[in-house]
């Protein structure tokens, strides 16, 4: 149990998708103008990550890894399909995103309208594929750990995007130099937030 809590906290604070690895930057910068839309995108990302990371974990352990196909028969024991992982992971992600899109359209048309083009773009949100690739790299022990990692990374992204949206709403009333307005100041503020998050790095879990 403690192991799970550690993975969760680590995924949110120490290995934060946005501030430590710059993943999901595109949607992070593009959708963070208003807190309400960024809230919706954050939720969508949490959901997609929580679903895709364990799915890809199963794929990785029962199809792709070297020796993973041993359950079919002894002839397959030394097959290594890991070079296919990008294609399979992205296929899982694209179909999951399609699913989320249909669900959101059905149950929350307002949110669907607000998210607009960025919902299908979750498929190409680096944070999602990054979650699966980090899962592959870090060799989690079982599927629960992988799920917790996916959920934690999602929450990390959620916190980051809602925080920057709140700051950007406030910054509109500040007197920023004209060439720095909009994109420039957002980059610099993100950098400063990243420095803040770095203070978590010293924590050993």
């Amino acid at each position: 149990m403690q192991e799970l809590v550690n993975i969760f906290a680590k995924a949110i604070f120490i290995d934060n998708m946005v501030f430590a690895y710059f993943l999901g930057m595109c949607s992070y910068l593009a959708v963070s103008k208003k807190v309400s839309t960024s809230f919706g995108l954050g939720i969508a990302v949490v959901f997609v990550l929580t679903v895709t990371v364990p799915t890809n974990y199963l794929l990785q352990n029962f199809v792709l890894q070297e020796g993973a196909l041993a359950w079919i028969g002894p002839n397959f024991a030394d097959v290594d399909l890991s070079f296919l992982s990008f294609i399979l992971f992205i296929a899982v992600i694209a179909s999951m995103v399609q699913l989320v899109e249909m669900l959101v359209e059905k149950f929350s048309p307002a949110l669907y309208g607000a998210l607009g083009i960025f919902l299908p773009l979750i498929a190409v949100n680096c944070a999602i594929l990054g979650g699966s690739l980090f899962m592959q790299e870090r060799n989690y022990a079982n599927i629960t750990e992988a799920t917790v990692f996916g959920f934690g990374s999602g929450i990390g992204f959620f916190i980051a995007i809602v925080a920057i949206a709140a700051i950007r709403e406030k910054i509109q009333y500040s007197n920023v130099p004209a060439p720095l307005k909009g994109l420039g100041i957002t980059f610099i503020v993100t950098g400063l937030m990243g420095i803040g998050f770095m203070s978590f790095m010293g924590i050993k879990l």
Binding site: F19, P179, I188, T190, M198
Partner: peptide
């Protein structure tokens, strides 16, 4: 070498570019 400086460097690049290209 730390991640946040990449963001700040790009921020400054954007600043310079937009100051030249109004």
């Amino acid at each position: 070498l730390l991640p946040p400086m990449a963001l700040i460097t790009v921020g400054v690049l954007i600043w310079i570019q937009r100051a030249r290209n109004t």
